[in-house]
């Protein structure tokens, strides 16, 4: 578990980072919190010749309000996310989910940008961002563009990022006041990836679900939006039959791998349960 040699770069601006990454090409990797990349390097499954450390770029830090959105700088840590009053009051599901990411030591170092940009289906934030309708700002040699979280993930570790591009911020629309939310994550222990997890954001009207969005973590090679499951919930009071139907609709799009967390059948089964439980809990907290 000893990495090979590499060159270390610490640019001070996004422009410098983009230039380094495009000049150095495929041998270079940006370094954020390093929780995914560094272990891969220690196993020599990743052997980048250059690491471009983004910690020196002040512009990538911080959380600010931009109209009806919260804009979170890519190098904002999970700890900073948890410390943010804006996040806690306007989108408490992010607060809840960040608390489920490993342990304090990991959260002091792990960043929101690294979490969403790496394309690891086990990461918690991507499905949440899809559920919340967030978009990612990508800056590269060809300029700046915004990509919806829902369009960003193409396969395990494959994303819409082009060579030389960096994900610089995440823009999240503030959900309606009084919305209900829940992130249900089944994991074996602290620090583990989800066996299955479901995020729900919904609004209630007259005892029935008015709007609903459901995201799924680690049950497919990419995070998923469970559109049919959400449709099944809308217009209902989430009776037992609806919950069953929503869980089944979510299970229908799951394709998890069998691993030590359990066989495929189990992971889909508990994925459905996470959806049903998240719906119930979200409805209970909605105003």
């Amino acid at each position: 578990m000893i990495p090979g040699s590499f060159s270390y770069h610490r640019p001070a601006s996004v422009a410098d980072a983009v230039k380094l990454l495009s000049d150095l090409g495929e041998d270079a990797r940006p370094l954020a919190g390093g929780h995914s990349l560094v272990p891969m390097m220690k196993l020599r499954l990743a052997t980048p010749a250059h690491l471009v450390d983004l910690h020196g770029i002040a512009a990538l830090k911080g959380i600010r309000r931009d109209g009806s959105n919260l804009v979170i700088g890519a190098m904002t840590t999970q700890h900073e996310l948890l410390a943010s009053g804006d996040v806690a009051t306007t989108m408490p599901i992010l607060h809840e989910a960040a608390l489920l990411i490993a342990d304090p030591q990991v959260r002091y170092r792990g960043t929101i940008g690294g979490n969403v940009a790496n394309g690891d289906p086990g990461n918690d934030m991507p499905a949440l961002m899809m559920t919340l309708g967030a978009s990612y700002r990508l800056e590269g040699p060809g300029g700046t563009r915004d990509v919806a979280a829902a369009d960003f993930y193409q396969g395990a570790y494959f994303t819409a990022l082009e060579p030389g591009e960096i994900l610089t911020s995440v823009s999240v629309p503030v959900p309606a006041a009084g919305h209900g939310y829940a992130y249900e994550k089944l994991k074996r222990k602290v620090g583990d990836y989800a066996t299955a997890a479901a995020a729900v954001v919904l609004t209630m009207s007259g005892g029935k679900v008015a709007t609903c969005s459901i995201g799924l973590t680690n049950v497919h090679e990419t995070p998923l939006l469970a559109v049919d499951a959400a449709k099944a919930a809308i217009g209902t009071s989430l009776d037992a039959a609806t919950l069953k139907k929503a869980a089944a609709a979510a299970e229908a799009i799951m394709a998890p791998a069998a691993d030590a967390r359990g066989p495929v059948e189990y992971r889909k089964h508990v994925g459905g349960i996470m959806v049903a439980r998240a719906l119930q809990r979200a409805a209970a907290v909605a105003k």
């Binding site: 342990d103 074996r188 602290v190």
Partner: peptide
């Protein structure tokens, strides 16, 4: 330790 169960104080 991802797959070899080593409980923390939480579990």
């Amino acid at each position: 330790f991802m797959d070899f169960f080593m409980p923390t104080a939480v579990e």
